[in-house]
Design a protein around this nucleic acid. Structure first.
Length: 740
DNA sequence: ATCGCGCAAATTTTT
DNA sequence: TTTGCGCGAT
């Protein structure tokens, strides 16, 4: 009996189908990682494929690490040479080698969201764009989605027509890219875009990677965007051995450019594609799975499928409503304590999932009080903290002389008496002479307007130069210690003697630990230790990547972060309309947004293996204001036979005197029954009176042209380009469009 | 040049 | 509730 006999027939089919394009539609908990790892093992052990020719792309570094570990266990030999990584790290690896072909230097810097914002701020200043009207974040968002769709600055410019706002964005986009290049820097989106560009402009490079990666597998395929899809299709273009695994019901990153068309249209791009569905769930109890199925069933635009399981029925889904977020957190903390105390489970078996990071605070407080060990995932990224960014900016400055942003960040940290006035004089000099900011600093004595500020700049330049000269013979960790010592960064914090300063010092210590462990890892793998290598690792790390399954803590994270994970006990907190689904999606006129929230809910429910608890609060503090929310509409979508409502559900009384302002609203929130008696059904029209290309009229949006019609099973999703309102997506049965 | 105060905005999700 | 920014005082 071989290891492949433990697979079910569909899984086995997916494993054995090694040649040609394959689309695996894998429902939640259907064992897709198992399929992927077995597939890799089969390729190597049975088909004699060189591990070096295999590439597996996952969504997070954590998933990549886990896959590598699992492959290690079942593959006889050579699993270490399989390329397992994320889109972003794969692209960085390729670009480090070849980006000089696109006119960048190979030691480019990667800009995170903060860096992007600072850069955009400068760009706006330069172009006289008022950031009060056009927010940096909004501009960056537009640029990001352009990049996700492989629309470059030139093409964007052409598409703007005479829309004033978009014209501004086009200008900003062009200038932003120019600045990035000047700084020898790439933002996250660029990593993918530039790799695609590289492949398209250098056929020899593409060919070498096509020869290398003869077998390619992509996990979480539903969350890939157009650029990422282009990247894999180029790579797989020659041998066509591309296997993608995904679940349209778990697509939760549309807001970030994920293109569900990549799943739905896979067979169009790869006509020979074999499609395999995995519908048996091995993770959850019958009850949990049924709850998930019922919720997702309310989505109209989805591929029809129904998950089933042989697992036991298990506990009902628990539902509890509380007065406020405080009680909610208290209940969950108490519940977990009780379960652990009674030996039912361990801390690490439990996870609390919520919609927004801001919701974590309450749980942290309660867990600290109840002495429950927890690990918070996400929130303010470790590498985004001021002290860490400062020190990294030093490292970046030493590493990449052209990263102006990094230099500007640290030139006056610690205080050196160099202010904005001097900086702008230096910048003027740089612009006049067509040199970089740091180059200008080096020639500060030539800048006549600076006056006595020169005497403040020179020591800084000397300091950086001395660090650079050491680069060849000291390690990154020693360099970091040098920087800390010579700038007096930690000494300064120690002098403050505040709690905040303490925690900053702790963070700095942690950073040192991270550098050292990077070096150790390099040595263990016989890789070269380099400053660039460390900075790159740091730039692409996500918080979830550092979660260790062995340490016994309750996990706190957003629903998004929970994707791909599973836990025996799951608490979905903050199940309230306005929180989850979020207010933004409730008021949106795009019905697909609420569907994305529902998919998020589906992801949340299906994380649970044994036990699921849903909680909500009647009143909740949101940014200093008390809101009164109804229980989430998603709760009502779970059949009540599956739910345990708790004993004292209705006995709770209002303790506080409600504020008159929100009283009506609050009354509504309390009166609203959790479960609707009747579900109202949507009738799908058997056919539509209009077709793609027809001009139609909408009661609110006026006239427009039908761009596409997608049959979502229970209804049609129609995309219309309205003359006045622009492009809108809507469902046929709601929109009541009339053909003109 | 630096500090500190007060006002405004933000909170949907992340590689 | 927290963070970030601008402006005025030192």
């Amino acid at each position: 009996m071989s290891i492949y006999d433990t697979l079910n027939p569909e899984q086995k089919e997916a494993v054995l189908q090694t040649e040609g394009p394959v689309l695996i539609l894998a429902g939640a908990g259907s064992g897709k990682t198992r399929v992927l790892t077995h597939r890799i093992a089969y390729l190597i052990d049975e088909k004699g494929i060189n591990p070096w020719n295999i590439m597996a792309i996952t969504f997070t570094n954590k998933a990549a690490g886990e896959m590598r570990e699992r492959v290690d266990k079942i593959v006889g030999f050579g699993s270490e040479s399989i390329w397992v990584s994320t889109f972003h790290s794969s692209c960085v690896r390729i670009l480090r080698r070849y980006i000089d072909r696109l006119g960048y230097e190979n030691n480019f810097t990667i800009y995170d969201t903060d860096d992007q914002k600072s850069l955009m701020k400068e760009v706006c200043k330069k172009l006289n764009i008022d950031t009060k009207i056009y927010k940096e974040r909004a501009i960056l968002g537009a640029i990001s989605s352009a990049k996700d769709n492989l629309v470059g600055p030139e093409e964007y410019e052409k598409s703007v027509m005479d829309d004033y706002g978009r014209k501004k964005i086009a200008m900003a986009y062009t200038e932003y890219q120019k600045e990035l290049k000047k700084n020898n820097a790439l933002d996250f989106d660029d990593l993918i875009v530039k790799t695609v560009e590289l492949f398209q402009s250098c056929p020899d490079v593409l060919d070498s990677y096509q020869e290398r990666f003869k077998y390619i597998m992509v996990d979480e395929y539903q969350d890939t965007n157009t650029a990422q899809f282009k990247f894999v299709s180029l790579l797989a273009g020659k041998y066509q051995n591309l296997c993608v695994v995904g679940d349209d019901d778990q697509s939760i990153y549309k807001f970030r450019g994920a293109n569900i068309g990549n799943i739905l249209g896979f067979e169009k791009v790869f006509p020979r594609a074999k499609v395999i569905k995995l519908e048996q769930n091995y993770r959850s109890t019958k009850t949990i799975l049924e709850a998930a199925n019922q919720v997702i069933h309310n989505n109209i635009g989805r591929k029809a499928k129904t998950l089933w399981t042989d697992n036991e029925i298990g506990e009902p889904v628990h539902y509890r409503q509380f007065m406020n977020g405080y009680e909610e957190a208290e209940y969950i903390a108490g519940d977990i304590s009780k379960r652990v105390r009674e030996g039912e489970c361990e801390y690490k078996d439990c996870a609390i999932l919520y919609r927004t990071n801001a919701q974590s605070r309450m749980f942290e407080e309660k867990f600290l009080m109840a002495n429950i060990p927890y690990r918070l995932v996400g929130g303010v990224n470790f590498y985004a903290r001021k002290e860490i960014k400062d020190l990294l900016a030093y490292l970046k400055t030493v590493d990449n002389a052209r990263d102006d942003l990094a230099v500007r960040r640290i030139i006056n940290v610690p205080k050196r008496g160099i202010g904005a006035a001097s900086l702008s004089k230096v910048q003027d000099f740089a612009d006049q002479n067509g040199i970089g900011f740091y180059d200008a600093l080096q020639r500060a004595d030539e800048i006549t307007t600076l006056g006595r500020a020169v005497s403040k700049i020179t020591p800084f330049v000397t300091f950086i130069q001395s660090l650079r000269s050491k680069l060849d013979y000291i390690s990154p960790s020693e360099l970091l210690k040098d920087i800390i010592d010579e700038t007096g960064y930690v000494t300064e914090l120690q002098a403050e003697k505040t709690e905040e300063a303490e925690s900053r010092i702790e963070n700095i210590d942690e950073l040192i630990t991270k550098v050292v462990s990077y070096e150790e890892e390099c040595e263990a793998n016989n890789e070269e230790i380099s400053l660039s290598g460390f900075l790159e690792e740091v730039a692409l790390i996500a918080d979830i990547d550092t979660v260790d399954g062995d340490d016994n803590r309750v996990l706190l994270m957003t629903l998004h972060s929970a994707k791909g994970l599973e836990f025996p006990y799951v608490y979905l907190a903050g199940m309230e309309d306005g929180v989850f689904p979020s207010y933004m999606t409730i008021v949106s006129d795009d019905p697909t947004e609420i569907e994305e929230e529902r998919r998020l809910c589906y992801v949340g429910i299906t994380r649970a293996m044994k036990d699921l608890t849903l909680t909500c609060a009647q009143q909740r503090m949101i940014r200093g204001e008390t809101q009164y929310n109804k229980p989430s509409r998603f709760i009502r979508e779970i059949p009540k036979e599956l739910v345990d409502l708790g004993k004292n559900f209705k006995e709770r009384k209002i303790k506080e005197i409600p504020l008159p302002k929100g009283y009506q609203q609050m009354k509504k929130a309390i009166k609203e029954p959790a479960f609707m008696q009747k579900k109202f059904e949507v009738k799908k029209a058997s056919s539509l009176s209009y077709d793609v290309g027809d001009t139609v009229k909408h009661i609110k949006f006026g006239t427009g042209v039908v761009k596409s019609i997608i049959d979502g099973g229970r209804d049609y999703e129609v995309t219309v380009d309205f003359e006045k309102a622009g492009i809108k997506k809507m469902f046929a049965s709601f929109a009541k469009l009339k053909k003109l």
